[in-house]
Design a protein around this nucleic acid. Structure first.
Lengths: 340, 340
DNA sequence: AGACAATGTGAGATCGATCTCACACATATT
DNA sequence: AATATGTGTGAGATCGATCTCACATTGTCT
């Protein structure tokens, strides 16, 4: 019983006019007689006519959809961003296609290709890799609006919205050092990821400022999931001389660290101090509450979306690079280290 | 410097053949000479030809995109579902458009219309309202594959994946009653929402089984956000004779209740017992850990996606209705009520 | 009355990919 | 030799909406 949706032709036929006239009436341009216009509208109403956006898009070359490629929507940070982008897109009459790269470059590339062949109008991407960016450069060369979010990529000159990762990490680690810690652990994800590099470099800078030699044994790398972070933390703290403080680079890792500490019977902040990058719902429910570096997550998505829609509405000019400040929120997960 | 993407015509021209032949070579159907095929492939390669999926979709009437309309991607429950759907869609060569209804019927309707006019192939929807469903019925009448998720709608006969909300709620409230509570509060969201109704009805059934008269003063309604839930909880517990136990219908509400209790100086489980519907990351980090009714969230999204793709690949037959069991996970947020 | 605008309408081209059909030429079959 | 089959190719229609252009019809101005 599949009733095909009504087309403009059907409307025109019912109203006894040509397709051209029907189009004029419905989109109100050019000359149309009042009576004719009414007939057309009545016919459209009666048939439940809804224009085929596909055909429209084919005609004018662009589909009112924006693409958004993030690492993982399950990360609350990305979920919030996706939500805000979708909301703004909706206001602007766009829809949002979401793809998860799962932090795999190949996935990101193929997702982007498949979306581009849909004549999608613009992209917001959190690039998996800071270096491999031929696919992004191609977009720019083809003049497709692109906004990078959370992360930038080397040599890719386009709009972007990031936070001061290095500064945030540095503040956190400096604070730990000021509290007397000298063996400060770092739990981070893949070094290909821009934020990871920057946070690592903030970590290093803080160590250097504290005249502490970097020590690879204090650094553990894992995928950004709770489970992987648990393992990585356990590895880090099973050493003979484990860190006395830990800095984790995102909220999933922070959760993993908390779970690992619990399972190992390590208590915070008595046995180990902890600071996480990115504030999250859980942070104030634990005992003690977790000290974090917070990012203005409510602004990031909206800022990126606004940049994209500005481009889409024709604004040209130099790429705009936003960099939001981060803030150290001191709660109770860090204690002063005596002696050693 | 906007270089338009190469079209089939360009490829055909470069290879010195007609469009028809080029199409045959690239999609390998019909007869094509070996040499010709090679020429075409070489030309396509050289021009970086990527078919225009828009034009293809217009031709065959369907776009390889599925639409997913959920309440709010920020709810970890929906985030997980969205993630799983996207992953399966990707495997099947589809992309995913996500829309947030924000629990507004109007939003849901307009989102659905706008996506349908894109010739999108199928939908997974968590309907805002259990009753207002003309838009869903229309989809079915037009034979568009539709899978309802988390919630069903009255009279809408299609594939669906839900959990046993009533049973879950009932188990929770019966447990509270068995622990000696007689003033059991309910913190729920809008009654138009299917899950809300079902959970309410489980709550009522448990009260009835315990021979406790329902009392409207024990029920507080709010939007499903942490902030609204805080207010609603405060209202509930500012009464002369507040509940001694509380059942919350989703994880955001549970978080709200926890925050409210903290701000009111109410301690769990000493002053009040708490059970939440839907397990969530925070539940095991609090002290005490929160007793919850858990749903098999990892299966829901995949099940729905599988149903949808089965339909898309032509499977017909009676609508399939999945209903997953829920499980009461007893942790430490409920204590036995003595005396009263 | 004749010229010239303003108004209203339809035929047909276009976007890009695909598919049907007709036609060419070869080889195979009686 | 005449017909059938197999192979390879291109012209043109199609999907649905839109836009350009040409053609009417009215009204207005000298």
């Amino acid at each position: 019983m599949l009733r095909k949706p009504a087309t403009l032709k059907d409307v025109a036929a019912l109203a006894n006019v040509s397709r051209a006239t029907a189009a004029r009436a419905l989109n109100s341009y050019g000359y149309v007689g009042d009576e004719t216009a009414q007939k057309v509208h009545a016919a459209a109403e009666k048939l439940g006519y809804r224009g085929n956006r596909l055909a429209q898009a084919l005609r004018n070359g662009q589909l009112p959809i924006v693409g958004c490629i993030l690492g993982d929507i399950q990360n609350p940070f990305f979920a919030r961003i996706a939500h805000d982008i979708e909301a703004l897109a909706r206001e602007c009459g766009y829809n949002l296609v979401i793809g998860s790269s799962e932090e795999e470059l190949g996935q990101e590339v193929s997702l982007l290709e498949s979306l581009q062949s849909l004549s999608i109008r613009g992209f917001i991407v959190a690039p998996t890799s800071a270096e491999s960016n031929a696919h992004l450069l191609r977009l720019i060369a083809e003049n497709v609006p692109l906004v990078l979010i959370d992360r930038v990529a080397e040599g890719v000159d386009c709009d972007s919205v990031v936070v001061d990762n290095e500064g945030g990490a540095r503040k956190a680690v400096e604070y730990l050092i000021a509290m007397g810690h000298r063996r400060v652990g770092l739990l981070q994800d893949d070094m290909r990821i821009f934020t990871s590099r920057e946070r690592m470099s903030g970590y290093r800078a803080a160590l250097a400022a504290g005249e502490i030699a970097p020590d690879d044994r204090m650094v553990s790398v894992s995928q950004s999931t709770v489970d992987h972070a648990v393992d990585a933390t356990i590895r880090l703290f099973s050493q003979k001389t484990p860190p006395t403080a830990l800095f984790t680079v995102d909220s999933l890792m922070t959760q993993g660290a908390l779970l690992a500490f619990r399972s190992m019977g390590i208590s915070i902040p008595h046995d180990v101090s902890l600071i996480g990058f990115d504030d999250f719902n859980l942070a104030t429910f634990t005992d003690p509450q977790i000290t974090v570096v917070s990012q203005p997550v409510a602004e990031i998505g909206r800022a990126a979306a606004r940049l994209l829609f500005d481009r889409l509405s024709g604004k040209s000019g130099q790429p705009q690079k936003f960099r939001f400040e981060t803030k150290l929120i001191v709660r109770g997960s860090v204690s002063r280290r005596r002696g050693v």
